[in-house]
Computed example of a mutant assay.
Amino acid sequence: MTGLTSMAEDRLAELETLVRRDTESGRYWGAAIKIARHGETVLDLSIGHADEARTQPLRTDSVFSVFSITKAFINVLTLRSIELGRLQLTTKMSDIIPEFSGAPRDQATIFHFLTHTTGMPGVWEPTPGWFMEELQDGVDGVIKHIHGAVEPGTRCDYAPMANHALLAEVLRRTDPKGRDIQDILVEDLWEPLGMVDTYLGIRPHMRERHVVPDMRDTIPITSPSRSVPGDYGLYEAERNGVTWAGGASTTGDLQRFMEMLRRGGTLDGARILSPQTVKLATRVWTGDLPNELYKTVALRNGYAVPPAAIGLGFNVRGDGIFVTQLGNLTSPATFGNYGAGTGLIWVDPETDITFIGLSAGLLSQAENIARYQQISDIVAGAAN
């Protein structure tokens, strides 16, 4: 089956109706959604607006600040570096960054960083109001202020910033060309994949289409910039080094990224990863451990605590029925990443579906999970 014949059109229409109803009611301001089946786009949708005042209609090529989806780019480049022999999953972070010292955190390996099992608590910012606009700012903050609480591997604490500041610094320090992290991302990932609207910051050609994020009190920190005023100036700056949350992209670019993963690491002749690495990275490595961040969300909202189900940097659907952004009708092998209150990307290898969703007007963690669980189940249920 190809094209729309591979998906039930009436079910996709239900998805559009749901998003339109949500945006018209003010649940969020707008959304852009792109879905592919067997590599062919079956839905390319934009509904609503970029802002509460409804002055900027969303477009299918609108540029969103994607927050933690940024981590997925660092994850993939870390795996690529392992394939190139620059480091191993068993390499200790302290072997590459000696300043990252002190027990027990100095025993944490690249594997622990990718699986969020370093033993460090999930900290949003090292100190209140800390400038983290450049990679070095984040690295310095983690080294100085975020210490190990338990032995690596014994607890899964999703790291909002620490892990991917240090993983990016690993990429920088082990790069044979001595490039900065922005150039590594562009030259080794985004350019090969034809991702022309993706960057750490808002390049001039992206600015007119940029959806300035409306935090709506959903993020527990500010994100100031040295070049743009305001509490969240970071997300409007032309350039940043925030490798854990500073990325901007479109549904089209993110579809290319996820299609590369769906195809086993290669897209249009550009090989980023091997099929074996993709397979290894998209299986669950956290066992029965809960994700402490979402354990809190579950307990606060009165539903069962789900397993963390984290691979080598990817969230995995896994077995069982529980509250999850990845839905319950998707296959256990479904994997992807999310961005705080706004975005979700996933691939279901069994049904061969690629899903990209980005929205304007951030939702709380619980509300965002509920929203995307509903959407993901509609998408999975639309497969013929």
Rank of each mutant, 00 (worst) to 15 (best):
R239W: 01
P290C: 15
G287Q: 03
A304Q: 07
V242P: 12
V323C: 02
G233I: 10
R256D: 09
A308S: 11
L267H: 03
M215I: 15
L273V: 04
W285I: 05
G233C: 13
R216S: 15
R283E: 04
W285Y: 04
L261M: 13
P229G: 14
A245C: 13
W244I: 13
R256Q: 13
T324S: 14
Y235K: 11
L267S: 07
V305H: 09
G252V: 10
I221C: 07
D214R: 14
R263E: 12
D231S: 09
P229Y: 02
P307E: 03
S223G: 10
G230Q: 15
T282S: 01
D214W: 01
R216P: 15
F257V: 08
R271G: 13
G241P: 12
V278R: 02
V211Q: 11
R262G: 06
A304G: 05
G241S: 07
Y294K: 05
S227H: 15
V297M: 13
V211K: 14
L273S: 06
P290G: 12
A248D: 11
P229T: 06
M260W: 10
V211E: 06
G233T: 03
R263L: 10
L273W: 00
T222R: 12
K295H: 03
S331C: 05
L299C: 10
T218C: 07
G311V: 07
Q325S: 01
V212T: 11
V212D: 14
G327S: 08
Y303M: 03
T251A: 05
M260Y: 07
V305M: 03
R283L: 05
I221K: 00
T243K: 01
L326K: 04
V242S: 07
V212H: 02
G311M: 08
S249M: 01
Q325C: 12
A309P: 08
G246D: 02
T266E: 00
L254R: 04
L254T: 01
R263D: 09
L326V: 09
P306T: 11
I310E: 07
S225I: 05
L326N: 04
T330Y: 09
P224F: 11
G233S: 15
T250K: 07
R283V: 14
L293A: 14
N291A: 01
Y232R: 08
A333Y: 11
P220C: 14
P229R: 11
V297Q: 08
I219C: 00
A281G: 00
T282F: 10
E236S: 07
F322S: 11
I221L: 10
A248E: 08
V278D: 01
N328W: 06
L261E: 12
E259A: 14
S249L: 08
F257R: 04
G233M: 11
T324G: 00
R216Y: 11
V316C: 00
R226Y: 04
A304V: 15
L299S: 10
D253A: 12
G247W: 05
R239E: 08
S331R: 01
V323R: 13
G327R: 10
D319R: 00
V242A: 12
S223C: 02
D214S: 15
A333G: 06
M258I: 03
A237E: 03
D288I: 13
I310S: 09
G327A: 02
V297Y: 13
R300F: 02
L312P: 06
G269I: 08
R271C: 12
I272S: 06
V284E: 07
L234N: 14
K295R: 14
V297L: 12
L299F: 03
L289W: 08
A309H: 07
I272Q: 02
G318A: 01
